[in-house]
Design a protein around this nucleic acid. Sequence first.
DNA 1: TTGTGTGAATTCCTTCACAGCG
DNA 2: CGCTGTGAAGGAATTCACACAA
Lengths: 207, 207
Amino acid sequence: MNKVDIPAIIVARLPIYLETLELMYKEGIYKTSSRELGDRIGITAAQIRKDLSQFGEFGKQGTGYSIPNLVAELRKILHVDKIWDVALVGTGNLGTAIARYPEFNHRGFRIVMCFDSDPALIGTKVGDITIEDSATMIERIREANIKIAMLTVPGSIAQQVADDLVKAGVTAILNYAPVALNMPPDIIHVQHIDPILQLQQMTYYMD
Amino acid sequence: MNKVDIPAIIVARLPIYLETLELMYKEGIYKTSSRELGDRIGITAAQIRKDLSQFGEFGKQGTGYSIPNLVAELRKILHVDKIWDVALVGTGNLGTAIARYPEFNHRGFRIVMCFDSDPALIGTKVGDITIEDSATMIERIREANIKIAMLTVPGSIAQQVADDLVKAGVTAILNYAPVALNMPPDIIHVQHIDPILQLQQMTYYMD
DNA sequence: TTGTGTGAATTCCTTCACAGCG
DNA sequence: CGCTGTGAAGGAATTCACACAA
């Protein structure tokens, strides 16, 4: 189970499996097969079995998979069998909306700190979190030992703030700013959310 | 240049090329090579050349690519050489933040209509757009001939609203709701934005 | 029978390496 | 020279198909 040799493309599918299985469980379904799960997600049954076989043998021949069991295994594999504290940097429109988004709490992540550099916002609250001054960010994140940050600042300062996050000991950044971050890939993971890239993929197929 | 045989994985990279080239142009750089572009993005020069060669010959041997020219070609290929009208459905925290996000306007997309079912919101404004009643959505989208929708409604009603969007003639949905939409893939394109899936990919590599 | 886990076969994607042009 | 565009080679990912267990 050496992490380095699991292809990233497989890792990217595991959260989809987990999400789907959690939904099925909520619907009152407690067992499934690779076929049924694949039909829901839109991929082949063989692919699901191959992917899961990288991590262990979670199914029973003739029977399929126990959903609670597979959910627990996937949470362990993805390290979301605990709650991760997250810092949110930038509390403009988007940052505020994310801070109020309830889903994070239910699925392994808890926003525990918010930062902004706007004096008009510092000291005000988003939900029940007080917005703190970005000037204190490095220190505050380090002493709280936070490893994950969501970045919702303007593109013009995103790189600078990301550099500060690295100094603070953060090892994962979810980047909502519309710029590619230049980061040392060996010490930090970056995921980029850019809705325009996704819209442009779709317009390719449209007239 | 038959669309069906261009792999989706290549189409997914084109908007990244476009975004990067647009940024370089803003920086005052007007020509580049596959090597330089690849270094910025973090992929190989050969891959960029192979990808672009699917659509034509845009470079000059010994010289590289003209950035304005390649930007124009990519916009044509991706059909963002025009402005697409977009409908936004769901004007809660997230929808409101998206409606106010300025980037869309600069990169080929214009939000022209907003819908919500909450009587307290209908008739109020987000930016300069008046929120309309979801009950009128199908008719309004159809008569405005809008083909792209962004979906920021609660997961519990996302499937129902998406079905309505199909009835309204929409052919592309950018889905922010935390559920997989079940759609006829031959008539509609769906892209899903789920920050939790991306966070969970990163925690896989963390302790 | 059903449905897993897995080698083998296949398909798909990326990289190599170089002819050829400016 | 420098750098593109592209066949050929190599590598990765997916799918097939079946032994085997419940």
